[in-house]
Write a protein that binds this DNA or RNA. Structure first.
Lengths: 113, 113
DNA sequence: TTGACATATCGCGAGGTGTCGATATATTTA
DNA sequence: TAAATATATCGACACCTCGCGATATGTCAA
């Protein structure tokens, strides 16, 4: 069974590249400094576009676009109250994902601030 | 204390957009169907460029480039053996991250395959 | 109704990403 | 040494992303 030496050493996980197309698309949406901060912020409560824009130090329309991107892939949901629009987390898995990301990338300096 | 109504409702997490610049860069590297599959594969053992290219159904040079990208941000390490080059996981956090990603995005169909 | 405020949308241009084909480098074998 | 194999690198091109300014839409208050 010389052909099976490899198979004995390691088992290839099931799945193909195609199975990761959706995941890649959503991760691409997440892979942006401003949007990561937005998610971190929204994991702690609802915020309006204006509040989020101020926190991220960007213009309101830029915040609006980035929030819409994340709404499109199901990460966020919005709710209009008067002339303000509140955004909040809509994807439960985001908490776990952000936890992994913060654990790996946020320096201790940023955490203790 | 009318100005503190908001503060009582929710606490803003520490950190700023700048703290996520590195995380975003690395996530961008991960946010690609081929590269996600590569990571999943390598979490189960070492593989050569040729083996990885075949699994992902891409050309060798394309595999080589994508692997190099992930090596640059510390995800992978390579080791030459003869004329072959084996790649393997170099970032311990990748296992946890992929776990989150698979849990959210891989359908039950892909998992049971 | 008019004006002010909050958010959303659009077109544009600069810069970045991914893939391909060709070529280069490294290693082994004949 | 020459040829074959495995991987890496490069230039070119198509495509995409991002933020900006301008403008549109929706909502409230006077």
């Amino acid at each position: 069974m010389a052909a099976n030496i490899k198979a004995q050493q390691q088992t290839k996980p099931p799945g193909t590249v195609r199975d990761f197309v959706d995941a890649a698309e959503c991760l691409k949406t997440l892979a942006h400094p401003v949007r990561l901060r937005m998610v971190q912020l929204l994991l702690h409560g609802k915020y309006t576009v204006g509040e989020i824009a101020e926190d991220c130090e960007i213009q309101d329309n830029v915040a609006s676009e980035n929030l819409r991107l994340m709404q499109r892939c199901g990460f966020l949901a919005s709710e209009r109250v008067g002339r303000k629009v509140f955004y909040q987390i809509a994807e439960p898995h985001l908490a776990g994902l952000m936890n992994c990301i913060e654990g790996r990338f946020l320096t201790s300096a940023a955490k203790s601030r």
